[in-house]
């Protein structure tokens, strides 16, 4: 069993195995389930993710009216051929947005690692489809690799916005995605760890401050930028760039930052963007009364 990223990379290198393989083997050991059953179960999650992206790309709107339709705007913009940051990157961003718009509309999604951060991993995965041409098995492997890194974060820091802020949710999701992108693109386990470290470092301190307490503003756009962050960090790691601070120490820093983060900035809708004049105004419009004045 691996407890941290260093052990995970060491295991992968010494046994000459992919991180996704190690994650599957550990799952078999912990649950006593067969390899086929575990892969089948992940396949179900993959299908849910694909359906959520498709639904979001057709355009959805949340009950509050705060979010929806941005994935469609982005897809139309990509088709115009005028995008500045590149089609693949924006495709990842639009698919991450699509997933979170479906989530906000109380649609069916797969938490990766949470619902509020469910867009980043599938967004990047499905955007890579044309470039890397993964088969179904490789897409499932992508999810196991992302899961392995998320597993380490969940056990050594947190994946809960209420406990650790948005860095624990979209931050974790982005790091997980970056690591999985590297593996799918043919990078080494050590490069996956570097990509995770580079991503997380740029998410440290991110607070959880949802307007009106809804998983919409700023969550949907945080998933967008999380997907972009993951793609760029993966490219940096694949280029041979390393993080001066080792991945496990970045995760530990994230945990400590979460612990010292005030409660107003940990999913209570009391601070940050939730407490801005416009945030309060939207809250009053949706619920009649601001949450803090009831």
């Amino acid at each position: 069993m691996f407890r941290n990223v260093a052990e995970l990379v060491e295991l992968a290198e010494s046994k000459q195995k992919k991180i996704s393989t190690l994650m599957i083997e550990q799952e078999m050991e912990v649950t006593g389930k067969s390899r086929e059953e575990i892969i089948r179960q992940m396949g179900v999650n993959l299908d849910v993710m694909e359906q959520a992206v498709e639904k979001g790309l057709q355009g959805v709107r949340s009950v509050s009216g705060l979010t929806g339709g941005d994935a469609v705007l982005l897809q139309n913009y990509i088709k115009s051929g005028n995008s500045l940051s590149g089609e693949l990157l924006l495709d990842a961003v639009s698919k991450a947005v699509a997933t979170n718009e479906v989530n906000a509309a109380m649609g069916t999604i797969c938490a990766t690692p949470t619902a509020g951060s469910a867009g980043v991993v599938p967004g990047t995965l499905f955007a890579l489809q044309n470039k890397l041409k993964p088969n179904r098995e490789q897409k499932i492997e992508f999810l196991f690799t992302a899961g392995a890194f998320g597993f380490v974060v969940a056990n050594n820091a947190s994946i809960s916005g209420a406990a650790g802020g948005c860095q624990a949710e979209v931050g974790s999701a982005s790091g997980m995605a970056a690591a999985a992108i590297v593996e799918m693109a043919g990078g080494t386990p050590a490069q996956s760890a570097e990509a995770m470290a580079i991503t997380l470092k740029n998410m440290l301190g991110l607070v959880c401050d949802p307007v009106a307490g809804l998983v919409e503003v700023p969550c949907v756009k945080r998933n967008a930028m999380g997907a972009a962050n993951a793609m760029v960090a993966a490219d940096m790691a694949l280029a041979g760039i390393t993080s001066r601070i080792p991945c496990d120490e970045v995760i530990d820093a994230m945990y400590k930052i979460g612990q010292t983060m005030p409660s107003a900035l940990r999913e209570t809708a009391q601070g940050g963007l939730a407490a801005t004049p416009t945030g309060r105004e939207l809250e009053a419009k949706i619920f009649g009364l601001p949450l803090n004045k009831k």
């Binding site: 992940m42 989530n103 509309a105 109380m106 999604i109 990766t112």
Partner: peptide
């Protein structure tokens, strides 16, 4: 270790919007 299964991380399949506040 609080989390033991990869499906605690990739999953659950759920109705949105929040894994902790809705699914949990």
């Amino acid at each position: 270790m609080k989390f033991r299964s990869v499906f605690d991380i990739i999953g659950p399949v759920m109705i949105g919007p929040s894994s902790s506040h809705t699914a949990g």
